[in-house]
Design a protein around this nucleic acid. Sequence first.
DNA 1: CGAGTTTGACCGGCGC
DNA 2: GCGCCGGTCAAACTCG
Length: 300
Amino acid sequence: MDDGDGGSPTNSAGLLPLFSRSPVEDLEEKLRRATEENARLTRALDAILAGHHAHHRDPGAPSATTRAPNASTSCAARDDDAPVTATAAAAVSTAPAPKAEPRPKIRTVRVRADADANSVAENVKDGYQWRKYGQKVTRDNPYPRAYFRCAFAPSCPVKKKVQRCVEDRSMLVATYEGEHNHVAQTTEFVGGSGCTMSQPAQHAAGSPPALHPCSISINSSGRTITLDLTSQQLEPGGSSCVVPGDGDLVAAAVSPEEFRRLLAEEVVQVLRNDAEFVETLTNAVAARVVDKIRAGHVDL
DNA sequence: CGAGTTTGACCGGCGC
DNA sequence: GCGCCGGTCAAACTCG
C-alpha cells in the first residue's frame, strides 16, 4: 500500500520525484502499480467472499432471517439468534426462495430510525428512489405500513414495504420484492462505478432527520459491499461491516478506526477497479502536467 | 403547473 | 357466501 516502495527518497515530500523522469513515464509507473495493487486486492476479496459463501452454505449455520415476509415486522427475536448481526443497525436478509417458483426475490431489511419520527420518514435510504403508492394500517401492527414502488417503475418491478417494528418502534422493517434492473441512482453521491453513498449530513440540508443510516454501498463487478456506520449509535466504539454478497449477509463488529481503514480501502479498490475512472483520471492528470510543462511552470 | 404524496375506495385471496 | 385483511388504485391535495 505504501507509495514509497522502491521509490525515490523524496517521494513523501510531494511532486518533485515526479519529474526525476518524464511525467508520462511516472504516471505509467503509478498506473502499473495501481493495477498490480488492484489485482492483489481483488484476489484478497475473492478469497474473503469464497470463505463467506462456504460459511453460508453450512447447513448447521443458523439463519437470522428465514421467515415469511408477512411476519417481518416483529424484530426483537431475530437479533437473538443472530449474534453476528446484533450490533448492526441494518440487517439484510433473503427469504428462502423456493427454486421451483419464479417468484420475485424477497428481502427484509431492518433499519434503526428515530422512535419519534413521523411515519413519513419511513422511506429507508437504500440508494434507490421510491415512489409511495399506498399506506395501510395492518392488523398486527399499530404503525402504518407504507408501500413504495421503484421510481423507475414500470420498467423496474421492485416494490418495498416499510413499517415500524411493533416491538421496537425505533426500528423500521423494510421488505423488498424483486430486484432492480438498473443501478442505484439517488440524490446521494453516485460514483462512476456504481458506488453510492448516503450520509446523515442531509440533516443540515433540511431533510427530515428521521433515519440514522449512514451507509456506503459499493457495487463492484457485480458484488455489493455495504459499509454501515449506523451502529455507532447503538454501541459507542463499535461499527459494523455488512457484506451482503449475492444477497446474503455477513456482518462483523469492528472498531471505528478499523472501519475507517476498511472504508478507505474499499473506496480505493472500487476506484482502482474502474478502468474508466483510472483512464479518465490519468488523462486529466497527464493533460494538466503537460499544460504546466508547456507553460513553463515546472522546472525540469 | 407538474411531480410527488395522501388517503379513502376498491379488489382479490383466504378462512370460516 | 360472507367477512376480514393485505395490497393497489386513483382522485384530491401539497409543494416547489
